[in-house]
């Protein structure tokens, strides 16, 4: 009787389980297995050449990989926080607009519509130190005497990539946070105003707590989605020069797809997955606590 009660639901979800196993679980298992092999794309038989921990051992000893890993952590942290701040600012400004808000919301989404490859080319052209717009403009107005090689120096190259990424993705935060602001009830803010709260106090103690679930949802989505910046970085510097802007994504793509060393690339991916898990776990916990706090307030 008990078995029969489970059988029907199980039967109903079985197709979903099969599909998920086929499109998620199986590739994960195969890629994990291949990370212990000498798998090279141009020699399919190498998938069966077991090399044990060799790929992982080499990665752990490879300072270049760990620099790329650390740079990716910093890039993620700085980019997401700045995008959040700027996105929040934009959302608050647009929420104040009474006429033409729909048009502004559409304009705001323009950068999101560009493919990262296009953004990469666009910034590459802007920042080219010989024929680029920025250096030529600065030279013309006499602000500099020699062009600045934006994409060569480690600090300016990483900053340039960060600016391009922020330009491309801030609107994601702005749109999500604007949705939160528009969904927010007006009464608490009006009551605070009547009680004599300053604009900052209203924002800090009423608006922001209400927005926090949206913030963490946006953070979670963006932390998983930020990898699409790979195409942009690839066009702008491809991790160079001399590895100065190398991120885990560019390194993996080079090793996996250009070198065809899928075994090693998969080992990199499994080491990097730690990063995704940490970020996702952190934001999921923060989201839960923000929702709980909102519930308590309500």
């Amino acid at each position: 009787m008990r078995r029969a009660r489970w059988a029907v639901p199980l039967l109903l979800v079985l197709p979903a389980i099969v599909v998920i196993a086929a499109v998620v679980l199986l590739p994960l298992v195969v890629s994990l297995y291949s990370s212990f092999t000498a798998y090279t794309m141009i020699h399919p038989a190498s998938l069966y050449r077991w090399v044990g921990w060799r790929n992982y051992r080499r990665l752990i000893e490879d300072s270049g990989f760990w620099w790329a890993f650390g740079r990716t952590v910093v890039f993620l942290t700085v980019a997401l926080n700045l995008e959040l701040l700027l996105g929040l600012g934009l959302a608050l400004l647009i929420a104040q607009v009474t006429r033409g808000q729909r048009l502004l919301r559409t304009v705001l989404m323009f950068p999101m519509m560009f493919s990262p490859v296009l953004v990469g080319f666009q910034f590459n052209f802007l920042l080219n130190d010989n024929v680029g717009l920025l250096d030529n403009a600065l030279l013309q107005i006499g602000a500099i005497r020699q062009p600045i090689p934006w994409l060569v120096n480690g600090a300016t190259a990483n900053l340039s990539i960060l600016v391009a990424e922020i330009w491309m993705s801030t609107s994601v935060f702005a749109i999500l946070l604007l949705a939160g602001l528009l969904a927010m009830p007006h009464e608490p803010v009006e009551a605070a105003r009547v009680d004599g709260c300053s604009a900052w106090q209203s924002f800090r103690y009423i608006t922001l707590p209400f927005l926090m679930p949206f913030v963490y949802i946006a953070m979670t989505i963006r932390s998983l989605d930020v990898g699409r910046a790979f195409d942009m970085v690839r066009i702008m510097t491809n991790g160079g020069p001399a590895g100065r802007t190398e991120l885990v994504w560019t390194l993996m793509a080079t090793v996996g797809f250009q070198d065809g060393q899928m075994g090693r690339a998969n080992a990199m991916a499994y080491l990097s997955i730690i990063l995704s898990i940490v970020f996702t776990f952190y934001f999921a916990r923060k989201l839960a606590s923000a929702r709980a706090a909102l519930g308590d307030t309500a």
Partner: peptide, 22 residues
Amino acid sequence: VPAGTINYLWDDIGQSFASGSV
């Protein structure tokens, strides 16, 4: 050479010469 040449590939090179600055 321009400092940025370390990031250049073929299109950047061609455009630089065509610009008259090389």
